[in-house]
Design a protein around this nucleic acid. Sequence first.
DNA 1: CTTGATACCTAGACATTCTAAGCCTAGGAT
DNA 2: ATCCTAGGCTTAGAATGTCTAGGTATCAAG
Lengths: 105, 105
Amino acid sequence: MDAVRGHLDGLVLAVLATGPAHGYRLIDLLRERSGGFFELPEGSVYPALHRLERAGLIESGWSAEEGRRRRVYALTARGRHAVDERRREWRSFSAAVDAVFGAGA
Amino acid sequence: MDAVRGHLDGLVLAVLATGPAHGYRLIDLLRERSGGFFELPEGSVYPALHRLERAGLIESGWSAEEGRRRRVYALTARGRHAVDERRREWRSFSAAVDAVFGAGA
DNA sequence: CTTGATACCTAGACATTCTAAGCCTAGGAT
DNA sequence: ATCCTAGGCTTAGAATGTCTAGGTATCAAG
């Protein structure tokens, strides 16, 4: 999924906008919501989560359940704002690409 | 325009699908057809052209006009095929991203 | 004759995704 | 008891591709 480059952060934020999730679950949600299109490796998603947390757009806590350790991420206030921003950016970007590709086959 | 990463080749091919062009002109066409969205630096476009030529999707020749030297690029047969391929790929990619972003603000 | 637009090229910086490994728990199968 | 698979997190290093920033050169206009 190299085509996702530059858009992954927005996608992660978009998923978290619908509720907190831990990394592994997030990968599943990205696959499900994209109709199976996104099969992102952990090595892409975990660094993205760390990046977003450093940037203050998400925050995390370890889940209290015994045994399985899970780091659960949720949007911060700034993160909620960022989702709309990224979605706007995506829409103008995708409109621009559509315009260049035209109505061809 | 870092968001273009991974999609630039397809965009270049799409422009050349409407007729041959030299690099500088191509940059203009990308700006025009995207409604001013794409302001790509030469340092992105020229390497992309070289890449595509090495890959056999486009071919070039120096224009005969005196003075101004221009390397004019045109799609090869394989390049014409590749445009449709890239457009299809773009459509499924953009549908996937749209699905994840949802209908939010 | 200097400036600005046209036109091409490229080395190195930079950011980000992916590969590939490692570590650990839980639960079912052998 | 032991192995295997799935769940779950992490990170180093490779690979890729865009951008920065510089260079070269022609030509027209002031």
